[in-house]
Design a protein around this nucleic acid. Structure first.
Lengths: 338, 338
DNA sequence: TTGTACGCGTTATCAA
DNA sequence: TTGATAACGCGTACAA
């Protein structure tokens, strides 16, 4: 079934059929009726390959999500969808593997589907630095800070990761914790992790706590890695009374590990996470965390993208508020020292 | 950058360039070198629209995953990937929204990308029943039983959901529970849920427990829905000592709800889940569950697909073993009655 | 071993 | 308001 067949069956030409199918003007109601009827009856679908091949400019925006099962991004996509549904731009989402190069993919997409704009969820800034120069579409990076990058068409919206991490450490300190451990993401590949590390250091120094290597362990963003990391951390430093994990997923893995070692959370060790995803809400103990403002991230991201598309606005870099969510995985210690 | 440009730059013709890019024979090493060099240097990428449009038959298989953030399917995809990497068939994965029609999408894919075979993860059997007649590619449904359907090109691999649910109820019974509640999926849309319901009934009847409406509540497969469902269940039937939730996600939501009502799990109420996904492993209490054999599901699914592709084998319907994973969310009751 | 030319299904331009 | 026809970028007979 092609538009050619539709044309033959209805007695019109492919030109007219195409115009009807794309809702273009200058078609008689009679033709529209006949063609639409026939299309529905036969379950006709346009071949997008041909459409994209011919079309020199699409009409939607595309979101590139790096890292499949990522709760945070999943929610963000929902909000983006909602924002975009207020506009005329359809959204298409592509899911990429953790280790795929989002920018590389963006290049292909630009040529093939020719969207009006690009939304990057995740992906590390090194990718952007290296290859983004070749993409010419208005783009915005969500949760990856691009403010240091020299691209006039790449905006970004992020949580202030450094400040947020600082807030987490401050909170632990205020609860009386002095021996604080941190489970970080991979500082080499994750921009947000680096920023959060910076925030941690700043807070620790400010409180007169040494920023020794013994406080930090690195992990991938998974339950299993968090589990493992917690074990390494308490092996390295047995006096720890509180842990800041740079994601909720790692925090949950960590709590489980402590539990399996016979340590109670929060009575023996407190744990604070980062992100504010669903599973933390349903965990026992209810996970104390720094919540990223997912809907604002989405809302501002879409707004900046539209500005880029409609006003050719130059790249802007925004930061969005976060929130400390006090729940049950951090406890106040009785402390004598201050 | 098109193959035309590559041809011009290297002095060869588009025919030769195309042959090189597709690794076809009858090309001089010299030409191969020159063209590949030039392609790499310029970061050339084939336009897949044009490729698919022209190609009358692809060379890979496609997996259609219904329901984005679904842990079970995410793992299954990994295993499928692994299986397929042993073969010559590249895998492409498409993620569909919960409420999209996978078969509809399959139809489009068949025409546009022309894969050799289709793998359906999720999707309900009503879709298959209604529209699958139009797809002619060898296909296999994973976790959706298609044995009742009259399609010679649609195989299926499932866990024996009825037996598995029966096992869950038996286990609760053996642990001394008599007042058992069940959180089901939507019986109207979910085939597996219906089968599990059947298994539940069978086991309850066998144990002389009434199959009253008061034991059952329906929920979507989410934490929040599980939470809500547990509340409804204990409101309906306050004597319940054990709950079988038809997914781990619902089970976790349920445990949280019970916890918030001041009920301890498993001391006051036991909970058993279904699936065997990661979060259950890291939950506290460690979630007792019926584990689906994800890697076998993947392995057999791929095997059946290959048989369909390579031997035009007629559809086969298999069942794969499950496992009762005894962990900490179910407790043995002291019971007097037997 | 290489080049030429046609067609995949659509959009878009131009003439009718 | 409609119809013919030229692209879009590629694969592939077929000819050279």
């Amino acid at each position: 079934m092609t538009i050619k067949d539709l044309a033959r069956q209805t007695g019109y030409s492919v030109g007219t059929v195409s115009r009807v199918l794309n809702g273009q003007p200058n078609v008689s109601d009679k033709a529209k009726q006949a063609i639409l009827d026939c299309a529905n009856k036969s379950g006709f679908q346009l071949n997008m390959n041909a459409k994209y091949l011919k079309q020199q400019r699409g009409d939607g925006v595309m979101a590139l999500v790096t890292g499949t099962s990522n709760e945070l991004f999943a929610h963000m996509i929902e909000h983006i969808q909602r924002e975009l549904s207020q506009t005329q731009y359809p959204l298409t989402v592509d899911y990429l593997d953790e280790n795929e190069d989002a920018v590389h993919h963006a290049l292909r997409i630009s040529r093939e589907k020719k969207p009006l704009g690009l939304l990057f969820l995740g992906g590390n800034s090194q990718m952007f630095a290296q290859n983004f120069g070749n993409v010419s579409l208005p783009s915005v990076a969500l949760t990856a800070d691009a403010s240091g990058l020299p691209f006039p068409n790449l905006s970004s919206v992020t949580t202030d990761d450094a400040a947020a991490a600082e807030c987490a450490i401050d909170y632990l300190y205020d609860c009386g914790h002095r021996e604080i451990g941190v489970i970080t993401g991979d500082l080499l590949v994750s921009g947000p992790s680096r920023l959060r590390y910076t925030g941690c250091s700043r807070a620790l120094v400010r409180h007169g706590i040494d920023v020794s290597e013994a406080r930090f362990v690195t992990a991938r963003y998974s339950y299993a890695a968090g589990y493992d990391a917690a074990l390494r951390l308490i092996a390295k430093n047995s006096k720890i009374t509180a842990i800041f994990a740079m994601s909720d997923v790692m925090a949950i893995g960590a709590i489980r590990a402590l539990h399996d070692r016979g340590l109670r959370v929060p009575e023996d060790i407190s744990v604070i996470g980062f992100d504010g995803i669903d599973p933390g809400t349903y965990y026992i103990p209810n996970l104390t965390t720094i919540r990223q403002h997912v809907d604002l991230l989405a809302k501002r991201g879409v707004a900046l993208l539209l500005q880029g598309i409609e006003n050719r606005a130059v790249a802007t870099h925004e930061t969005v508020p976060f929130a400390l969510v006090e729940r049950d995985s951090v406890i106040k210690r009785n402390f004598r020292e201050g």
